[in-house]
Write a protein that binds this DNA or RNA. Structure first.
Lengths: 259, 259
DNA sequence: CCAGCCTAAGTGTGATCACAGATCACGGCA
DNA sequence: TGCCGTGATCTGTGATCACACTTAGGCTGG
C-alpha cells in the first residue's frame, strides 16, 4: 500500500502548471506581466518539483524509509515523469534521497552514527555561520531575527501549540541568522545538511511534542539573539551549538534512530 | 567555434560504454565477474558523465566562462543526451555549472567577491576538517598523508615540474587529510567547494607556474603534517588556513577574476 | 493446506522525438 | 556603405516510448 506515499497534504494538487506549454491548450492569455523588469528567473518544472520535495523533506512531510516513485511524484504534481526524474536525481546527489540497488527510491534511514556525524558537522558549520553573523549583523537583519524569535516563542508558549508553525518559525529563525552572515555559499551548505536531518528531526519532534514546552530551545535562542545584538561572535557560536546539541540529544533519547 | 569546447584531453574518447545494455550488439560475453561480492555499486551512465565532468572541473580542464552543450558532451562521451542532462543538472544544482537565461550552459565566472567568500568558507570548513583530523588521525592515515606530501614536494622540486601531477598531488594530500577526519559528510561539502573554485584555481596556477617553485605551499604542508602527527588540532587548522589563504592571495594578484 | 513457480504489474534508466526560444549570419533595402 | 529584418540552426526542456529488472500475488502441484 505505498499508494499512500505522497498523499500527504503539502504535495497534494499543487498542479505546477497545466502541462506547461506543450499542452496545446489555450494559455489563458499571456498578460504583459507588469513586473517583467525583474531578472528572468529560471523556473523549470524540474526545479519546481525539486523545491516541492525539498520543502517536504525539510518540513518532515516525508518520513525516513518512506518510498517514492517517479511516476507517483509526477502524477501527484501534475507533470510528466521527466521533471520528477531531474528533481529526484538532484536530491539523490544531495543524499537527501537514496536509490537502493533494487532501483527503489526512498528517504534514507539515518543511522545513529550518521546522525552524530551530521550533528558534529552542523555544530561546526552553523556555529561558524552564527559567529560570522554576530560580526556582520546589521539592524535590519537583527530585527528580522527578533521577529522570528518572537514568533517561535509565542507559538510554543501558546495554550495549543501548532507544531507545524513552531518548527517553521524555528527554521526561519535559524536561517535568518545564517543569512545575516552574508555568505550565500554557507547557506547552501547548511540547507544541504538540513535536508538530510529534516526527516528524522521533524518526525521525532512531531511524535513527542512535549519537548518544545520545556523551553530549552527558547533559552538557547534568547542567548543567541543577545549575542548577536552585542556582536559577541563566540557567544553566538556557543548558543547555537548548545541549541543543536540539546536538540540532537533529545532526538537520541527517543531511540528511533537505526543502529 | 565552440566546437572546440570539449576537445580538451581528459574528456576525449572516454566512451563510457558502448550504448549500455540497450544496444543489440553482443556484450562481449558477460563473465562471472570474480569480485562480485563487492557491494552492488550504482553506476549509471548519468553518474559516469557526472564524474567525468566533475573531475574535469576540479582538475581545471574546463575554464571559467567556457560554454557546454548537452549534445556535445553526450557525443563526446559516447552516450545519449539523457545522461548528459542528468549530469549537467546535478552540476548546476551544485553551482559548479550555471545555465544562463539564454539557456546556455557554461562554467560560472567567479567574481572577486564570490571568490573571497568561498575562501572564507573554505578556511572555516577545511580548517575544521584539519583540526578534526589531527585528533582522529591514525598511523595508517598519517602514512598516506606523508606519501602524498612527499609526492607533491618531489614534483615541485623536480627540474621539470609537471603541473598536472603537482596539482593532483596537492589535491590528494588535502583530501587525505579531510578523509582522516572521519566525517564523510564534511568531505562531500568540501568537494562541492573545490568544484566551484577548481576552474579558477587551476587556470591561474597553470598560467603562472612559478608560484609553485616558491615553496610556500610546501612550508604550509610541512607544518600541517607536523601538527597532524602530534595531534595539534589548532596547529593543523592554522597551517591549512594559511595554505588556503596564501593560495587565494596569489590568485587575487593575477587579476584574472571578474569584478 | 502449504510450498513452489510463474506471470503480470511496477520500477528506474536510456533513447528519441517535439517544441519554444535565442543566436547569428546572410541578404536586401534605404 | 550602413542597418535592419529574417530564416536556418542550435540550445535546453518536456513528453513519450522501450527495456532490463525487481517484486508481489495468484495459481498449480504436491
Amino acid at each position: 500500500m505505498q499508494r499512500r506515499d505522497l498523499q500527504r497534504r503539502d504535495l497534494q494538487r499543487r498542479d505546477l502548471q497545466k502541462h506547461g506549454r506543450h499542452g496545446g491548450g489555450a494559455d489563458a492569455g499571456d498578460r504583459p506581466d507588469p513586473e517583467a523588469l525583474a531578472p528572468p528567473e529560471r523556473i523549470t518544472l524540474g526545479t519546481q518539483v525539486y523545491d516541492a520535495l525539498r520543502d517536504l523533506l525539510i518540513a518532515g512531510g516525508l518520513a525516513p524509509g518512506e518510498r517514492l516513485s517517479l511516476r507517483t511524484v509526477a502524477e501527484r504534481l501534475g507533470t510528466s515523469m521527466m521533471p520528477a526524474r531531474e528533481a529526484v536525481s538532484r536530491l539523490v546527489a544531495d543524499e537527501a534521497l537514496e536509490v537502493l540497488p533494487n532501483r527503489a527510491v526512498r528517504v534514507p534511514v539515518i543511522t545513529l552514527q550518521t546522525f552524530r556525524e551530521l550533528t558534529r558537522v552542523r555544530i561546526a558549520v552553523e556555529g561558524f555561520a552564527a559567529a560570522e553573523a554576530a560580526q556582520a549583523c546589521g539592524p535590519g537583519e537583527l530585527a528580522a531575527i527578533r521577529d522570528h524569535d518572537a514568533a517561535f516563542r509565542s507559538e510554543v508558549q501558546a495554550t495549543a501549540p501548532d507544531l507545524e508553525r513552531a518548527m517553521r518559525a524555528n527554521r526561519d529563525l535559524h536561517f535568518a541568522v545564517y543569512a545575516a552572515a552574508g555568505l550565500p555559499s554557507l547557506i547552501a551548505i547548511i540547507e544541504g545538511l538540513w535536508l538530510r536531518i529534516g526527516p528524522v528531526l521533524n518526525l521525532d519532534m512531531r511524535s513527542s511534542p512535549r519537548r518544545l514546552a520545556e523551553g530549552e530551545a527558547e533559552a538557547h535562542h534568547a542567548r543567541l539573539v543577545a549575542a548577536l545584538a552585542t556582536g559577541d561572535a563566540e557567544g553566538a557560536r556557543a548558543a547555537l551549538a548548545a541549541d543543536i546539541a540539546s536538540s540532537a540529544a533529545f532526538i537520541e533519547t527517543t531511540g528511533r534512530l537505526a543502529s
